[in-house]
C-alpha cells in the first residue's frame, strides 16, 4: 500500500488520486492492478517480475518526474446530469441526514443538486464514488448496515455521494434513487463514466420514473434520454 507521507487529509487524498493516474499512465513493469483507497493506493504486482524494492523505486521516480500536483488536463472529462426521484420508499434516510446536518430535508437535496461532484474512483462493482457534496457537516454511516439496497440508490456518507449499481449491502445513507441503469455488463464499456468525470444530480418528479426507468446512462453526445420538463438538457452526458 502506498500513500502520500505528509500534509492534510485533503492533500493526501488528492495525492493518492494523482498517484493512481501516474501509475495507470506509466504502467511500471510488473504492475498488475491498483485499488484506490480514500487516501492510499494498493499496488498489486508480480513479485517474480519485479521486487518490492525495485517497484517502489520506479514509483518514486515516476512521481518525481511527473509531480504530485495534479495537472489533469481540463476538459478531459464528461459531464453527467443524473435524475433522481425522492419519496418515502426511495429515501429512507433523508430525515436522519437532515437531522444530523441540522437543516431541512429540502435543503439536503438542494445542496446535493447544487454541488458539482467529481468521480474520485470506481468502488465495488463500478460504483461511482463522488465528492464533494456541499453539506454543512459530515454524514455518518448507518449504525446497522442495510443488507440489501436497490440498484440506483443515491447514497451519502461524510461529504461523499455514491450510486448503488447493483442490489447489495451498504452502510451508506440512502436519500433517493435514479431510474437510470448506471452499470450494465452487456454494454461496452459497462459504464459510461470514469474517474475524473463530473456529475450533477437533479431531483425529478415521480411521474418521470416510468419514462426513464432502466435506460442506460450514456456517454457524451448521446441525447436519447431527454428531460421533457427542461428543454435542451439531457440526462446522461451534456
Amino acid at each position: 500500500m502506498v500513500s502520500v507521507a505528509a500534509g492534510s487529509a485533503e492533500e493526501r487524498q488528492a495525492g493518492s488520486r494523482r498517484l493512481r493516474e501516474i501509475l495507470l499512465e506509466v504502467r511500471p513493469y510488473g504492475l498488475q492492478d491498483v485499488v484506490a483507497g480514500v487516501d492510499s493506493l494498493l499496488v498489486e504486482f508480480d513479485c517474480l517480475a519485479v521486487s518490492h524494492e525495485q517497484l517502489a523505486q520506479t514509483i518514486r521516480l515516476a512521481v518525481a518526474g511527473l509531480g504530485l500536483d495534479g495537472h489533469q488536463a481540463d476538459g478531459d472529462f464528461t459531464q453527467f446530469v443524473i435524475p433522481m426521484v425522492v419519496n418515502d420508499e426511495f429515501a429512507p434516510d433523508l430525515g436522519d441526514v437532515a437531522a444530523e446536518l441540522g437543516i431541512r430535508p429540502e435543503e439536503v437535496l438542494g445542496r446535493l443538486e447544487a454541488s458539482e461532484l467529481s468521480i474520485n474512483l470506481l468502488a465495488s462493482a463500478m460504483a461511482p464514488m463522488m465528492g464533494t457534496v456541499q453539506f454543512p457537516g459530515q454524514v455518518s454511516r448507518c449504525k446497522e448496515p442495510r443488507t440489501n439496497v436497490a440498484s440506483g440508490s443515491v447514497m451519502v456518507a461524510g461529504t461523499n455521494a455514491i450510486i448503488q449499481p447493483f442490489p447489495g449491502p451498504t452502510g451508506w445513507k440512502v436519500i433517493g434513487r435514479t431510474p437510470l441503469t448506471i452499470c450494465d455488463i452487456h454494454e461496452d464499456p459497462a459504464t459510461s463514466y470514469k474517474p475524473g468525470d463530473k456529475v450533477h444530480f437533479k431531483v425529478v418528479p415521480e411521474s418521470e420514473w416510468a419514462l426513464l426507468e432502466g435506460q442506460f446512462l450514456r456517454a457524451a453526445n448521446a441525447r436519447d434520454v431527454v428531460d421533457p420538463s427542461d428543454e435542451g438538457t439531457s440526462h446522461g452526458a451534456v
Binding site: R20, D33, V34
Partner: peptide, 11 residues
Amino acid sequence: REHSEFMGVPC
C-alpha cells in the same frame, strides 16, 4: 480478470 480492480471489479 486482469486490470479490472482499478475499475472496482475484483479479479
